[in-house]
Design a protein around this nucleic acid. Structure first.
Lengths: 218, 218
DNA sequence: GTCTATATGAAGATAGAC
DNA sequence: GTCTATCTTCATATAGAC
């Protein structure tokens, strides 16, 4: 009897310990930033010896880069999931906006932004990765949604163009909410507060680009 | 309501060396952030001995706090200068917006934002100081400008309120420009690019809140 | 690959002369 | 107040056994 083939480890089997290191590193780097984080913290958080950390990553910088790239990929996957979700076709600006803001204002979203903004001068590639995985990704989503709405005659964005309209919508969403959350780390915004922000952005967007009926009816 | 205390003047003794230390510390902290900055760098930059640094500031944290408070106070002063400038009464949204964006996107403005965002969890007071000195300050300015325009019948912001309208205008201004500058530290936006961003925000603001003639005339 | 133990350097902060 | 010299601690990274 041939031996039952043990389930072959997937192509790139991240070693169990290697994964523990990466997860621990994420936790530590996202809380303390690059410089204040120490390999000791990571080693302890991963319940692993210091040598094990260096067995999988050549140095602290490489580990940091791996962490941020990993988080960016997760963020990108989240946005792709929104894009391909069954309700995507009927997704309103409001739903899209709320999904975006919930990610941006989540503890991980804020921490990632803090770290990337702070370390972009030192790690320029990470700044670009973050921009592509997050803002760029969601902007493409919103743009296509706006394009559809424009073709359907629901809105008119000729004054600024589709891309700018999408960017402005996202800017209005992020604007104050992200700034307040970044500078007031104690207070986490409530779900109701988030909804208020989204409504405000949607209202203003439609005032600017909605068909005149919406405004004239007032 | 207790009177808003003006930011307490940073305890800067008129001492020549103390000022050199503070200026050097600003240069170092704004470039490297708190943790990566070392007192050696500051000492060297100030052309002063290490003991002199500690003669004026009890430790690295206190020096950092002094630096950030000082920069926030400078920023607040800049905005107050805009407010009281002779041309303030005739200042258009465009001029106000450009002044704001030039400060936000300046090397110091970006560096200050990076550092404050990164260190706000560790130094919550600095987050608050920054918010009051910068966004809050300029928002008050824009709000009063919008209020005047609304009373003059040039715009109608009843749909969202004056405060929200001001916040949205500033959010549209900052939005993409600040995000791109933060994540792409190599490329500094040109003056023309800045003007484009301001025009875009003003255009959209007027589309949303301008009297219908502006929109109907299109 | 994983551990314990350690080398090596640098950081924050101080002592003591002037 | 200011300097030179130094103390102490701790960080990154490695050596060598298993």
């Amino acid at each position: 009897m041939p031996p039952l083939p043990t389930l072959p480890p997937p192509s790139t089997p991240p070693n169990e310990k290697a994964l523990a290191v990466l997860r621990a590193a994420a936790a530590v780097f996202l809380v303390h930033g690059f410089s204040a984080a120490t390999t000791d913290m990571i080693q302890r958080e991963a319940r692993v010896s210091k040598a094990t950390v260096y067995a999988h990553y050549p140095n602290k910088e490489a580990l940091f880069i791996a962490v941020i790239e990993h988080e960016c990929a997760r963020m990108a996957a989240t946005f792709r999931a929104i894009a391909t979700a069954p309700n995507a076709i009927s997704a309103s600006l409001f739903e899209l906006g709320r999904a975006y803001l919930q990610i941006v204002l989540s503890p991980i979203g804020l921490a990632l932004f803090r770290v990337v903004a702070a370390e972009a001068p030192r790690f320029p590639d990470l700044g670009r990765s973050f921009f592509l995985a997050g803002p760029q990704n969601i902007a493409a989503l919103v743009t296509s949604h706006i394009e559809r709405a424009a073709r359907a005659g629901e809105i008119d964005v000729q004054a600024v163009g589709v891309d700018a309209a999408a960017a402005l919508f996202l800017s209005m969403l992020r604007g104050d909410s992200q700034l307040e959350s970044l500078t007031h780390p104690d207070a986490s915004p409530s779900a109701a507060q988030v909804d208020d922000w989204v409504r405000l952005a949607v209202t203003t967007f439609l005032l600017a680009f909605g068909k005149r009926a919406a405004k004239g009816a007032r």
